[in-house]
Design a protein around this nucleic acid. Structure first.
Lengths: 160, 160
DNA sequence: GTTTTTACGAAATAATATTCGGCATACTAG
DNA sequence: CTAGTATGCCGAATATTATTTCGTAAAAAC
């Protein structure tokens, strides 16, 4: 499963460019891929309609907006049954500061990415909202000290 | 440290909207925040110039482009001195499949996010490129089974 | 209370996206 | 081999959108 959409070299180049700079004009994009604006736009539209391009997002500087603390949290549930997982996900979805939630292998549990203003806000958040979820057994936090790479560009070359 | 830029309610709303939909037209954005197009654009430009908005990115459907495996990797180095860290970062930066690299608390090591076409490609990548870095001591992979939340919207409300 | 600054809106202009018809190439069926 | 059909492209016309300009009003400073 997955895809059955064939992407040629030009499509891949478009995807690469739009991942690193979504604000490029169609005219400029067309120059960079070596086509005229019309077929360029047609290709982009096709990529959007097919769902290969899901959405477009602005990336913010978290420090500048007063969000100084980012963490990964490894969460273990009390039981790994469907019911507990559903309860957990429902609660997690309500918490804006939890911006990612992935079900991972290991002990069949979750990795969260959490963002807060500072350590004290983070502590408060975890204590009052996350620890408080009934099905949560254990939480292990890793505070991000610095981020050296945060690329929004998927390795398309590896699928050629 | 961090910021000294004052954001009012309108700025925050702009940031919220652009994070979830960067392709909105200025006219539409101005409607949603209740201003006319001119001052809306002026505010967006200010947010861009000040670096609060860092960049704009297209988000792709990894499954549809044939990238079926995403993982978190917890990497431990042989020594935590500056030299070893520099070596590690330099090598990591060369690997396109490693799309994130964060220095985290814990044992003072790194969390990577890695993307590959399938498990066998992933294994090959880790064996031939990541494990191979001289200063790497231990690698622990967590394969992402499914992602329940992957919000690109930072919790701005928590800084109000 | 006056000056200065800042923020806003409306309308004109400029830039850009989008549509349209036509042409070339490649593929298909007879 | 050939007529037919589909696909992908280009260039130009059109429509949409961004951007600038300028005048006004509110807020802040003095």
């Amino acid at each position: 499963m997955g895809q059955n959409i064939k992407l040629d070299k030009i499509d891949r180049k478009i995807l690469e460019i739009l991942q690193s700079n979504a604000k490029i004009t169609n005219a400029q994009l067309s120059k960079e891929i070596g086509l005229s604006p019309a077929p360029t736009l047609e290709r982009v539209k096709k990529l959007e309609v097919s769902g290969i391009i899901k959405s477009y997002h602005a990336k913010l500087d978290t420090d500048k907006i007063g969000l100084g603390v980012s963490t990964f949290v490894y969460a273990t549930l009390k039981g790994h049954n469907r019911g507990n997982i559903d309860v957990f996900l429902e609660e997690i979805n309500k918490i804006d500061e939890v911006i990612e939630c992935h079900h991972v292998t290991g002990s069949g549990d979750f990795v969260l990415k959490v963002i807060a203003a500072d350590i004290s806000a983070y502590q408060k958040l975890m204590l009052e909202k996350v620890s408080d979820i009934s099905v949560v057994d254990n939480l292990q936090s890793m505070v991000i000290l610095s981020t050296f790479k945060d690329s929004k560009v998927m390795p398309l070359s590896s699928t050629e």
